[in-house]
Write a protein that binds this DNA or RNA. Structure first.
Lengths: 154, 154
DNA sequence: CCTCGAAAGTTTCGTTAGGGAACTCAATAG
DNA sequence: CTATTGAGTTCCCTAACGAAACTTTCGAGG
């Protein structure tokens, strides 16, 4: 049998996972986000194998998370950039950074800092409620079936 | 050679990935979060193989994301619950839900809704700046080296 | 007492996918 | 006309997945 396909599950976590859940995908996105946009650069900076890098880039292109642009015609040279869909994925990366900084950084402190353009201060992401604007964590919500839930599975 | 170890990288994304990056891990966390806490239940509800489920649970226990408790001594029966470290990971799951709802749910709409205890409304997570409280997306920040960055690599 | 059944795994085995290195191809630089 | 760089392919080996069968511990039923 094949590896299980997450794309077909009725679950936004699984479907998001289907896009960026394979090894290396988030790191590729992160590097493209910070300006490492070319195949050779990605290969070198990450230490990822060329084969897997090729596969992941194709996958992310197919899903509309990345775009491939020629930045030179002769010789043919390309770079990969984020689409709007991909740019929003970077918010997810910042949520990962937040957890990693808190729980895995240890004594040394966070390896990377983020400065908010608007206020100029070093900060991190805090999840807030889209409706009332107050902080909202996983412990602050009730989980209810939505319109896209399975008709009647159990 | 082995699969590449993300734990040793100087990057909070990679280190977070090391904890929940293997296939199934986020879905296991999600199910424990919503109250599916036993081995047999997890196996059945996810369709994950028992072998992989065993491995993932051990991994998450080792990392302090889950706890294993006996809820019955005779016969010996266990359940898995979230530690504070694991509970904070669920905020990350909600960020995944947000992206998945926006970009993969399609016509049917989101499969699951979340109601904020504080305001009682159906809502989703919005990333805000921890310092000024305003919305903050990946496009709204500058990236700077932090205290835990590599001494002088490149 | 003997069997059944459920919870919680462990073991075995075949298939697939990741990692590394070597190879390809196109085009400019020297 | 050889070297070099960007951007991938191809090949091989090993590690990890999936399925199913097996194990162990206990309580319930006949």
């Amino acid at each position: 049998m094949q590896r299980t396909r997450f794309a077909d599950m009725t679950c936004s976590i699984a479907r998001t996972w289907d896009v960026i859940g394979e090894p290396w995908s988030p790191l590729i996105l992160r590097n493209i986000y910070i300006g490492v946009t070319r195949f050779e650069q990605l290969h070198e900076s990450l230490g990822i194998s060329r084969k897997v890098l090729t596969e992941r880039l194709k996958w992310l292109l197919d899903y509309g998370v990345l775009e491939r642009r020629a930045y030179s015609e002769r010789p043919p040279r390309h770079e990969y950039t984020l689409t709007p869909k991909g740019t929003e994925l970077c918010d997810l990366l910042l949520a990962m950074v937040r957890w990693g900084d808190r729980w895995t950084a240890g004594e040394a402190g966070p390896p990377v800092l983020y400065r908010h353009h608007a206020c100029g201060r070093i900060s991190h992401i805090e999840p807030h409620c889209s409706e009332c604007g107050e902080p909202m964590h996983a412990t602050d919500v009730d989980v209810l079936p939505g319109p896209g839930s399975e008709p009647e599975v159990q």
